[in-house]
Amino acid sequence: MMIKPLDQAVGSIDAMKAVFARDMKVAFRQRQDLLNPLLFFMMVVTLFPLGVSPEISFLQEAGAGILWVAALLSVLLSLDHLFRHDFDDGTLEQLVLQPQPLFLLVLAKTMAHWVLTGLPLVLLTPVLGVMVHLDGNSIAILCLTLLIGTPVLSLIGAIGAALTLGLRSAGVLLSLLIIPLYIPVLIFGTGTVAAAAEGAPVGAYLALLGAFLVLALTLAPFASAAALKVSLSNS
C-alpha cells in the first residue's frame, strides 16, 4: 500500500500522525500478525512451570523475571515486521523521500509498533501474573515497569531492525545485535519488582527506567533513521 505523497506544507506532526494512522490501519488488516507475539508471550511463560518447576514458591520468586524475559523475546520476534513489509513494497523509500525529517517518521512507526505489540503485552500481563502466583502489588508494579520498559525495547529494537533490513537471516542477526542492548532494561525492570516484593520504595527504580525511556526516545530514532538510509542505499 502506497502512502499519499505528503505535501511540503504538511507539518512534521501531521506527517507523524499520518504514518502512525497508516501503520495501525495496515496492521488491523492482518490481525494474525498482531496475535502472534501475544501467543508467543503466553507460550514462553507456559514453558517455565513445565520445564523448571510448578512450585508456587519458585514461580512467585521467578515470575516477574519470566514475564519480563518472555515480553522481551516477543518484542524481539515482532521487530522483524517493523520495516519489512514497507521495505518489500517500496513504501519505505517513499518515506525517506518525504520532506519531513526521517527520524520523526521513524519515531511514529516505532510508536505504532509499540501500540501494536508492547501495549497488548502489558494488558495481558495481569492474567499471566496471576498464573505464576504473583500477588496483586507485584503485578501492578510489573505492569508499570513493562509499560515504561517495552517502548524502550521497541525504540532500541528499531535500530536493529533498520540495520538488518534486507539481509539474509535477518531475524537471527537482529537478536544477536539487540539482546546485549536490552540487558539494562531487563535488569531494572525485574529489579523494580524484586524491590517492591521486599517492601523497598520503587520510585528511584521507576525514575531510572523513565530515564532510559527518555534517552531512547531522544537518541534511538536518529540511529534508526541513519541505519534505514544505509539499508536502503544497499538494496
Binding site: 540495520l163 541505519a227 544505509v230
Partner: peptide, 10 residues
C-alpha cells in the same frame, strides 16, 4: 556505515 552505527549505539 551500518557497522559504524552499531558500534556507536554499543
Amino acid at each position: 556505515r551500518a557497522v559504524a552505527i552499531l558500534v556507536l549505539v554499543g
